[in-house]
Amino acid sequence: MRWREVCRWEALRPELGAPVLVDGHLIALFRTEDGELYALGNVDPVSSASVMSRGIVGDRAGEPVVASPMHKQVFSLRSGRCLDVTHPELALPTYAVRRQGDVVEIGLP
C-alpha cells in the first residue's frame, strides 16, 4: 500500500464530501459526523459524471451513505454498493483512507 497525502484533516468538513485526484483516480472523500473517513470513486455510474462528492451524506438504517446528486441512487460509504432495490448491480469502487495526525491520506495498492 502506497499512502498519499490529499488534504488537511481540518479542511474536510463533517458530511461534506470533497473531490480528490490521486494518480488519475477520481475519488470522493467523506468524513462522517462520528469522525470516520471513507473514500469512494467519484464517478456516478448512472450519469458517468464525476459528482459523487457533491451528494448528500446521511444514513440508511444506520449504514452511512451518500446519495448521488444526479439521480439520487444511494450508495453505502462502507462498501460502495448501491442500496436501492432497483439498482443492486451498481457499485462504486472503494479506496483505503486514513488520518495521520493533521492530514488525510489515500492508500493505493
Binding site: R13, P14, E15, S47, V51, R54, I56, P69
Partner: peptide, 22 residues
C-alpha cells in the same frame, strides 16, 4: 454556512443548476 452547507442538494450547495455532465 457551516451548519447548512451539508444539508443542501447539489444545486443549492453550489448555487447553480447541475447538468448531465456534472
Amino acid at each position: 454556512s457551516e451548519d447548512q452547507a451539508g444539508l443542501q442538494d447539489t444545486n443549492d450547495r453550489f448555487l447553480a443548476n447541475i447538468q448531465r455532465n456534472g
